[in-house]
Amino acid sequence: MDRTFVMIKPDGVQRGLVGEIVSRLEAKGLKLVAARFEVLPEPRVTDQYKEHLSKPFFPSLKKYIMGGPVFLMVWEGRNVVAIVRKVIGATNPQEAAPGTIRGDFGIDIGRNVIHASDSPESATREIAIHFKQNELSVYTRIDESVLYEY
Rank of each mutant, 00 (worst) to 15 (best):
Q48K: 06
E26F: 07
E38R: 01
A34W: 02
E38V: 03
E51K: 10
A27D: 09
E38Q: 10
P43G: 02
T46C: 00
K50M: 08
T46P: 03
L32H: 03
T46R: 13
A27L: 00
H52W: 12
A35H: 03
L25H: 09
E26T: 12
G29F: 13
V45K: 09
R24T: 07
V33I: 15
L40W: 00
L32E: 13
D47Q: 11
L25I: 07
V33A: 11
E26R: 12
E38M: 08
H52I: 13
V45A: 12
A35I: 12
V45S: 06
P43E: 07
V33P: 06
L25P: 04
P41G: 04
V33R: 05
R36P: 02
L30E: 06
L40M: 08
V39C: 01
E51I: 14
R36G: 05
Q48I: 02
Y49N: 12
K31T: 15
V39N: 00
P43W: 01
A35C: 08
K28Y: 11
L32A: 10
L40V: 10
V39H: 00
K50S: 13
L40Q: 07
K28S: 06
H52V: 08
P41E: 08
K28P: 04
F37P: 09
P43R: 06
V33N: 04
T46A: 03
P43Y: 06
K28R: 13
T46M: 02
L30F: 15
V45T: 12
H52T: 13
F37R: 11
K50P: 01
P41T: 03
P41Y: 00
K50Q: 11
R44D: 01
Q48N: 14
R44G: 01
A27I: 00
K50E: 13
R44F: 01
K31I: 13
R44W: 02
